[in-house]
Design a protein around this nucleic acid. Structure first.
Lengths: 185, 185
DNA sequence: TATGACATGTAATCTGTTACATGATTAG
DNA sequence: CTAATCATGTAACAGATTACATGTCATA
């Protein structure tokens, strides 16, 4: 329904705000965990939070009370949670693989808590499906450029192929785990 | 010497311009090869080319002659080539791994032609060196979050670890190839 | 009471995206 | 001759980076 033109940072914030946090908390998560790819600079986060609040997806409340240095705690609204769920469960495209692998992994990481294990499994399946044509394209490119290109260019291509193969194995492994888990439930 | 505040797209263009090309040629490369992550939209490429030309790193000449639809062919200048070489041979940091793996691979792919096989080998070695602490950090994170986190979050972390392990194997494999090649020379 | 970490923000600038505009050439 | 493709650009806008600004609290 909504046009949903939110950049990746916005969704990352929504995902983290399943646990209410201040802007500073969020910055710390970005800089201390494996989410360093998201900027975490104040000039990015605070404006992004303002936009999300203006869009009604989160709500900030100034924390009155004990410590009393002004800290604003943000929480997801119902609308924000709905938007987050839609984003997480989006089927994975080939484009997601080339330009936003980090984002895909974040969506998957959040999926179980936000939308449940069966949705996680669906994400994995669409991920695996998207990998196949990508792998084939790269393999064809390798065949084509094998003889002409310099060694380093060929090796770089091989690196891409190996990466996707590794992702493929991981996807199968993860799918197996989820299928077990859902069966046992 | 120069401050070198060129964005990734700029360097990608410099790399491709080792072979003189028009803006349109470059767009085609971006959209048809595994470099789709670089925008290739005219609103990105043409301004970027202008900036590079203004900085004296490339020079464009309008192609007079046969076909006669106006096409501007860009070529690297000596300064541009020097800048490109510096960028390619930059040692690889941990930060490069988390935020710019694509860029690292591009640098490596270009390295042999632009700066020679021994430089390619150096890049691989600094790449491998940067991988180790990264892997250790992720493994520690996995240990810490193993019991608390939901399955999907744990699996996402495992995906990261597997990816870096795969990169590590590739780096060793590639280093072996280059060491052979350099010995035989 | 002075220093540094906590916590939040703003302003200038740059780059990329999206969408549109223009003209030249080739194919049907 | 008309449509599609080639080839180049521009303008409006959104978002990120960098650097700076501000005030609070703890501690030495």
């Amino acid at each position: 329904m909504s046009p949903s033109k939110i950049p990746a940072l916005g969704y990352a914030l929504l995902g983290l705000l399943q646990k209410p946090s201040s802007g500073y908390d969020l910055r710390k998560v970005f800089s201390s965990t494996s989410m360093k790819s998201y900027s975490g600079s104040p000039g990015a986060i605070y404006p992004a939070l303002s936009r999300l609040e203006k869009a009604g997806l989160i709500r900030g409340t100034v924390e009155e009370g004990s410590g009393l240095r002004r800290r604003q705690i943000f929480r997801l609204t119902a609308k924000g949670l709905a938007e987050l769920k839609i984003w997480i469960a989006l089927p994975i495209t080939r484009e997601d693989l080339t330009s936003g692998l980090k984002t895909v992994l974040l969506r998957f990481a959040l999926s179980e808590t936000a939308v449940g294990a069966s949705a996680s499994l669906e994400i994995l399946k669409s991920f695996e499906a998207a990998l196949q044509p990508q792998l084939q394209t790269l393999r064809e490119q390798l065949e084509k450029t094998k003889t002409v290109a310099p060694t380093s260019a060929r090796l770089a291509l091989e690196c891409g192929i190996r990466s996707y193969e590794s992702l493929n194995e991981w996807a199968r492994y993860s799918i197996a785990i989820y299928e077990e888990q859902i069966k046992d439930r």
